[in-house]
Nucleic acid binder design. Sequence first.
DNA 1: ATCATCCGATTGTCGGACAATATACTGGAC
DNA 2: GTCCAGTATATTGTCCGACAATCGGATGAT
Lengths: 256, 256
Amino acid sequence: MPRSPAKTPRKSARRPLFEPLEQQPAYGRVAAAIEQKILARSLRPGDPLPSETELARQFAVNRSTVREAVRRLESAGLVGRAAGSKRLRVTRPGHAATASSMSRALTLDDVTFIDLWEAMLAIAPRTAALAAAHARPENLERLALCIQTVETARGSEAAVAGVVDFFGSLAATSSNRVLILAMQPVTRLLAPSLRRMIDRVPQGRSRIVVAQRCIVEALRKGDANEAQSWMTRHVQDFRRGYEIAGISLDTRAGDA
Amino acid sequence: MPRSPAKTPRKSARRPLFEPLEQQPAYGRVAAAIEQKILARSLRPGDPLPSETELARQFAVNRSTVREAVRRLESAGLVGRAAGSKRLRVTRPGHAATASSMSRALTLDDVTFIDLWEAMLAIAPRTAALAAAHARPENLERLALCIQTVETARGSEAAVAGVVDFFGSLAATSSNRVLILAMQPVTRLLAPSLRRMIDRVPQGRSRIVVAQRCIVEALRKGDANEAQSWMTRHVQDFRRGYEIAGISLDTRAGDA
DNA sequence: ATCATCCGATTGTCGGACAATATACTGGAC
DNA sequence: GTCCAGTATATTGTCCGACAATCGGATGAT
């Protein structure tokens, strides 16, 4: 901190009389204004936004300016439009949007497999334990479906999608919003390497299926401890699979 | 899941011959193209982007379209401009940006304290364990500084900032990029309630200091197990503090 | 009530314009 | 030769107007 090495010769050095008045471009201010309304829940998810022309009128700026502002919110996931619809609506940043932004950040951060694996080892077992406490029949059904996908999928791509889906569904079962959010980018980034692993290690897939079956069984019994310990073993198994497949653990998890 | 109650009358139901060809607006495709170049590291942080006019020429679209695309990337934190500069440059999405976007998502998701606390219980202990393996003198020094801040800070606000900083520094010490990223929004959202807790529970602050000292001591010894178990106790202590302070665990962690 | 049809509203994209100013260049002072 | 001031150019922020495509809703027919 190069804050005050000198002896503050003048008051103005410590605390300038005027601070640089923030001069944000108009599109930024418009975006901020709308964002604030959303954050304050004055605009709630599902609510339609006024038309661009109307917004331009209300903010007294040009429609182009409004559009630029809207693009920002759109990218932040605060607004969006239903498929094949024209009207913009307020949306809570769908987990998809946030997760992909996290994935991007991690990718650019040169995250490695070992980072991802360790994160997985941290969150997945607790997630399983929580899921055991909250599991309802439809959750179990969904998880079983995921496992079946892994087991019967012809290509490795579909199998991996099944595994990713299993973890996502497990997080959903835990009904912990933080874990749901955190799980997504990790599994997504892990997916490509997992696919390679399944391709190279013949018994990999069946080991996954067995472990996941055990986890689901523990959930059915509502046994948090067992779910947690099975999940720990499951995740550790992944690592062994990587090693057998000869995938170096400190390679970057570049997404593409 | 109303997926296949019927008996899949035709092949086309299982696997449509044609999938809906993605028809993204031009600004979306432009943004995607630039994003891909950045993700693929063909454009690296610090590199300047061509001017809007030039981009418009290259993509063969109007400048307005390019601008909308750029707003998107800007909001995603993939590009930005240095203060008082005109030229756009590629920037990796700083953790600050990503973390705040995650906080926003969680806030709008009506995340509760219990969610946050459980997430904390999942990731903090493992983070501590990893930190024990990677701790270097400067890390320990920094952590000690955080603890001192907590101990000596006059107001509760500064003390809470110290606690948040402690966890952030711990994550940094673990050098796991995923955990670093995940830790930030959780602590940030936990902060306001933590402050109330410290305000209401007199002995809260000293308990925190004691626990954190033990954790740092474990790190110094490189004892991962001890670090992990102390951290577990530390986090569980938080919960007890909340209960003593009479803060309901399932209130929303609204940010503001 | 259900469905097809039509019209207005809205979005996506384009072209051009202009003020403010950051950046690059040019020439002079040392 | 280097450094600075002053000018010229490029670039951004914002505006205006226009038009095709198409979505949403009203209208009318069955």
